[in-house]
Computed example of a mutant assay.
Amino acid sequence: MKVINFSEQNTVINQYMAELRDKSYQKNRALFRNNIARIGEMMAYELSKTLTYKPKTVTTPLGTIDIPLVKDELLLATVLRAGLPFHQGFLNVFDHAENAFVSAYRMYTNREHTEVGIHTEYMASPSVKGKTLVVVDPMLATGGSMAAAYEALVKTGKPHAVHICCVIAAPEGIEFLKKSLPEECTLWCAAIDPGMNENKYIVPGFGDCGDLCFGEKL
């Protein structure tokens, strides 16, 4: 699996990440959601450089010109609910893409909340057969929900290529995906943090992305 970590580069993504992590900025949900979406837009742009293109002749009022356009059939898949603003950022760039939604969430399996299981409850997706599958989920902690979403999606067909996109990843999640997903997958991360705490939250991370975007849940 190829891993691309944008925190190793000097880009404006680091500014958005600093705001996402800052406790004072996190009080503004609109700003938090907007920064998640902006990172999605920039990541989508960088991902677009790896796709295949074919020329299309466009007629202007004064003549014609050949412009290379994306050849890949794109399918953007999102893990609910935290993935929605991130997904919107990708959709702002790949506005002709098809879309899929998977409800996959973590469940603690012991009283101490140190062991995690993943439950997949719902999926709405077209066939992924022959398409470039882009699965977006802001947090890659254990990797369980991402792997569960991927397994649910590929039941509809074999994709042409697979890209996994997240805002923050933990090394444990990356290693899990390397064992669970095809070797030719590409993982895109805005940052890779040192690890997780005993409750399987990424540290330093920025907390629960879904709660910070939309409010706390029961």
Rank of each mutant, 00 (worst) to 15 (best):
P138R: 10
P138K: 09
P138L: 05
P138Q: 01
M139F: 11
L140D: 10
L140N: 04
L140M: 01
L140I: 09
L140K: 04
A141I: 04
A141L: 03
A141P: 01
A141G: 02
A141T: 02
A141E: 03
T142G: 01
T142E: 02
T142C: 05
T142Q: 03
T142F: 00
G143W: 02
G143P: 01
G143L: 00
G143E: 06
G144V: 02
G144A: 03
G144W: 03
S145M: 00
S145R: 02
S145Q: 00
M146W: 10
M146T: 10
M146R: 01
M146I: 12
A147C: 00
A147F: 11
A147Q: 11
A147G: 04
A148P: 05
A149L: 03
A149K: 06
Y150V: 03
Y150S: 11
Y150T: 03
E151R: 15
E151Q: 15
E151C: 09
A152G: 00
A152Q: 13
L153F: 07
L153T: 00
L153P: 08
V154G: 07
V154R: 11
V154M: 10
V154D: 08
V154K: 06
K155H: 11
K155W: 09
K155T: 13
K155Y: 12
G157F: 10
G157A: 01
G157T: 00
G157W: 04
G157P: 02
P159D: 05
P159R: 00
P159Q: 06
P159C: 07
P159N: 07
P159E: 01
H160G: 14
H160P: 11
H160Y: 14
A161N: 12
A161L: 08
A161M: 13
V162P: 05
V162D: 04
V162E: 06
H163V: 06
H163K: 03
H163T: 06
H163M: 07
H163G: 09
I164V: 12
I164C: 05
I164G: 05
C165Y: 05
C165W: 10
C165R: 02
V167C: 08
V167M: 07
V167F: 05
I168P: 04
I168R: 00
I168S: 02
A169H: 02
A170S: 09
P171V: 00
P171I: 11
P171Q: 05
E172Y: 10
G173A: 06
G173E: 09
E175Y: 13
E175A: 14
E175V: 11
E175P: 08
E175R: 13
F176G: 05
F176Q: 12
L177G: 04
L177V: 01
K178M: 09
K178W: 10
K178R: 15
K178S: 12
K178F: 09
K179A: 14
K179C: 13
K179Y: 13
K179G: 15
K179D: 15
S180A: 15
S180D: 14
S180G: 14
L181M: 13
L181E: 08
L181K: 09
L181C: 10
L181A: 05
P182W: 10
P182C: 08
E183H: 15
E183P: 15
E183A: 15
E184I: 13
E184G: 12
E184V: 12
E184K: 14
E184R: 15
